[in-house]
């Protein structure tokens, strides 16, 4: 038996979340002494397979390089994974994907087609069949044991360290799986362009809430601070709903889950739906003019101040 990790990528480069997922797979592999294989499905994506082959601990990379897989639709990728698992040469005990948009979109489909449960966003491996995952916006942790033959799992990247991305020498094998090509048509994809680091990968995050007042303030007050710190920008749902920033800035229960070294919350009240996405950050700073804001209950360093004076002062002093 082997463990199959689904690579997250954009046909050009391997996404870092794949490394955390390989780490989770290694935890399981250490209990079962099974091999880790990485499945790379996409179009003109051999470079991704080569990067996956260099990850320490990976034994084999399965490459499905087919034009219709390039748009990353759930339909085509679920069909690929199911074909690989049911018709391929290797028997897989576990299928793991990072809990990215693509993973969350695709793996439940895979699980239903295999008639097994899917386990969402695990943060720890207790045993080959036993995993810990959050419930209720992370206010509760549950330990679940699966009775299914194939465990289909998404992995919360903040729960596992990244595997080492260099030094591995896995073989790359073209898969013989012939997935169904029926899928929706991708009309457009608008990705936010930014020179700042990605939220999921950033060591420092400067995050803003409704207290910023509008989109212009958001950029003019937080932008310079983020630039000085080499930080990513994040936001609350309230800030996104009000149109200050695009949707992919949202941190929280229903947005991104992050755990940087330093999280600076500015003009954020600290609703638990927001805390769900950032409370595992190493150091949390909160700047809020309301001394009773709940964010202060989890902040390592709280500054009660008007953000419009405190943040520029902070930026200037760095």
């Amino acid at each position: 038996m082997a463990i199959l990790v689904i690579a997250e990528h954009n046909n050009v480069s391997l996404h870092a979340s794949t490394l955390n997922t390989v780490s989770a797979a290694s935890r399981i592999a250490s209990l079962t002494s099974s091999e880790i294989h990485v499945l790379v499905g996409g179009a003109a994506c051999r470079a991704v397979a080569e990067a996956a082959a260099r990850i320490a601990g990976v034994a084999k990379v399965k490459l499905a390089d087919l034009p219709h897989l390039g748009d990353m639709t759930a339909e085509s990728h679920a069909a690929l994974i199911v074909a690989e698992v049911t018709n391929g040469t290797t028997a897989y005990s576990h299928i793991l994907s990072p809990a990215t948009s693509h993973g969350k979109n695709t793996l439940p489909r895979v699980a239903a087609l295999l008639d097994v449960a899917q386990i969402s966003e695990i943060i720890a491996v207790e045993d080959v069949d036993t995993f810990v995952r959050p419930f209720y916006a992370g206010n509760v942790l549950v330990t679940v044991k699966s009775s299914d033959v194939t465990k289909v799992i998404t992995v919360r990247t903040t729960g596992f360290d990244a595997a080492i991305s260099e030094g591995g020498t896995a073989v790359i094998e073209d898969t013989s799986a012939t997935p169904d090509a029926k899928q929706p048509r991708l009309i457009s994809r608008e990705l936010s362009k930014s020179t700042r680091p990605e939220l999921g990968a950033a060591k420092v995050i400067v995050s803003g809430g409704r207290g910023l007042g509008n989109g212009e303030n958001f950029q003019s007050v937080l932008g310079p601070l983020a630039d000085k710190l080499g930080a990513a920008l994040g936001a609350t749902r309230a800030a996104v709903d009000a149109g200050f920033v695009p949707n992919d800035y949202q941190v929280g229960q229903t947005g991104k889950i992050v755990a940087p070294q330093l999280y600076i919350a500015v003009g954020i009240s600290g609703a638990f739906q927001h805390l769900a996405g950032m409370k595992d950050s190493k150091v949390i700073v909160a700047i809020n003019k309301d001394p009773d804001a709940p964010i202060f209950q989890i902040a390592d360093y709280g500054l009660v101040a008007d953000l419009f004076t405190a943040v520029p002062e902070f930026t200037a002093a760095l």
Binding site: T73, T100, S101, R185, R189, P246, N247, D248, K256
Partner: peptide, 11 residues
């Protein structure tokens, strides 16, 4: 709504 922004599908 996807990780990096938005995408539009037709089906």
């Amino acid at each position: 709504e996807i990780d990096g922004g938005l995408e539009t599908l037709e089906f």
